[in-house]
Nucleic acid binder design. Sequence first.
DNA 1: ACTAATTTCGTGTACGTTACCGTTAACCAA
DNA 2: TTGGTTAACGGTAACGTACACGAAATTAGT
Lengths: 353, 353
Amino acid sequence: MEKKNSGTVGVKEIARLANVSIGTVDRVLNNRVGVSEKTKAKILKIIEELNYQPNIFARRLASKKKLRFATLIPQTSSETKYWEAPLNGIQQAANEIKDFGIEVIPFFFDQNDKATFKEGASKISAGEFDGVLMAPMFEDESIAFIEECNDKKIPLVFINSDIPGHNNLCYIGPNLYQSGYLSAHIVNYLSPANKKTLIVNISKEIDLHHHLLRKEEGFRNYFEQNGSTNELTKIDIQQTGYAHIQEKLAKQLAKEKYDVVFVTNSRVSTVAKYFEENKINDIKLIGYDFLEDNINYLKNKTIDFLICQKPQEQGYRGLMSLYYHLVLHANIEKEQFMPIDIITKENYQYYSN
Amino acid sequence: MEKKNSGTVGVKEIARLANVSIGTVDRVLNNRVGVSEKTKAKILKIIEELNYQPNIFARRLASKKKLRFATLIPQTSSETKYWEAPLNGIQQAANEIKDFGIEVIPFFFDQNDKATFKEGASKISAGEFDGVLMAPMFEDESIAFIEECNDKKIPLVFINSDIPGHNNLCYIGPNLYQSGYLSAHIVNYLSPANKKTLIVNISKEIDLHHHLLRKEEGFRNYFEQNGSTNELTKIDIQQTGYAHIQEKLAKQLAKEKYDVVFVTNSRVSTVAKYFEENKINDIKLIGYDFLEDNINYLKNKTIDFLICQKPQEQGYRGLMSLYYHLVLHANIEKEQFMPIDIITKENYQYYSN
DNA sequence: ACTAATTTCGTGTACGTTACCGTTAACCAA
DNA sequence: TTGGTTAACGGTAACGTACACGAAATTAGT
């Protein structure tokens, strides 16, 4: 804004103005040792006045610095392909920043096996990384690893779920409570006025439950706060096999007549399968995530709404945040909540994960 | 993928292998004149074999090439601030690519005055630009300008609305038909089963009407195709002042009792104002765009749903497409439809325009 | 065959930084 | 004084590419 020629001031000019060599300027720029406080101050002042911006191209060309990032997320299982999306985002980001001397090495764990998480974490610890992106699914195991990273001053970003209060670079993911709240808001628009809603939690690992509970909390609170007469029932299904889910659903649906079923995670397609097989089409079905199975049931109207929170962008922005922090020294928003997207039969075609 | 040391092969290595100097290699790389077919073929072959990727940093550092892009979009009026968002996107992109030697100069026109559009277009023609981004609102005037650009081989990208069949780089914006279709889909979920819906078109310039008509078409077709019993009425309001809109609405709403009002553009806030003043709260209201006024009416529940199509990203991606095309020689998707986002009281907080 | 015109190619410098190596000078101990 | 140590700084070769200039080689013209 100051001067039009601000693009052309470099170390050489700074050195000239400060009556030192460019070597000295370089030292204060990269705050290395070997320069007296006096000249350092003088140079800093000139840099300030000139609003010097280092030329990133020259920098990259001359620098041989390399950074290594590690990622630790669940592997995509046959059960759910949700984690494909964050991985895609990670790979996209990795590709964009590899020219800047950054190497990204992914590690995976099994959502149903804490041991594999610990294993991955210790590999990363041993691997001398400069930054880590992780999905902190298991609370206790995560905290141990987090503290280790804190000790080593390795910046850490969380995606998909948060462990609040633990010092790290940032969290990128959904606001779970609000996303449940939104689902309730949509349910509220669905006919009729006094309806019965069934909440379905499907999850094997008990640790992952707090994740679902926050959504459920938001969902319930909506109706309380808006004085609705909606009647809520909930069932927990702790086995993810279809036979078991089928049995549980059949039992529950025999008991009562529901207007809406709200599935708190991406397993909604399993419920949709049950609906389809049993020709249930008078119950509205709402669930989570832009997965192929889910989209198919959206197409044939078995599922009415999907809520989605840009899993791919979570991976992408997670890595980019590390990059911005470590390379550009930008400061990073501590909590980056993803949009809560509503997907239906008529807009899924254009959705970008 | 081939070799691990693929990062270290440059013109020098190519020159060595081809028994020529780096000058010659440089000539074929930038396909300049002055190299015989024979040696050119030899060098090209080596480049192919080595899968040579030029170092973008060294390239930018050494090059003093500059590109100039022009943008031509409506100015933000007091009537609607819609175009603030694309402009923001443009500025963001401009900022990101300015280090790559690209200068972006914005031009504006008045949506209600074709003359200003022509004026802007001729300024751009005179300005020797290398790429143009525009909102082709006025069809005839746009086509004249488009042909001029085609003659000069200047790539052109359209945002927000398209003029199909005219040769240009790409279109980035909504699929209007589908976005009307989606609105109808939402309306269909709203109680009760047999409802009366009022479609409201508010627009001064008759030229912009085809824009709105496509949405209306999608909206109507939904009900036809889904065999719904929804009863549709439509009014056109060609003055944008509140008094006039008020009068038209009052007259129409007195005639009949409607369940839903669908406003085909961002002027939905004006209708909301009328609803609020007249304490109408039993009619669902749906409209377009993430604007402050609209959001306020969303908050207080006067507006039920807003449809939004990432106007900021349209500007951003528009400029980036020019950049990718001209600098990186990437090939660009001809039609880039934006997501059709559904915004309600409970998810607007996290929406990113 | 000789010169002129033209095509084809090589060399050198510049771009702004980084990082290493060398130089100075200042200080202290012997 | 001398020698040695070290903090403070200068100088400069890279990094890979662009481009101008001029040399060399080829072709054309007589």
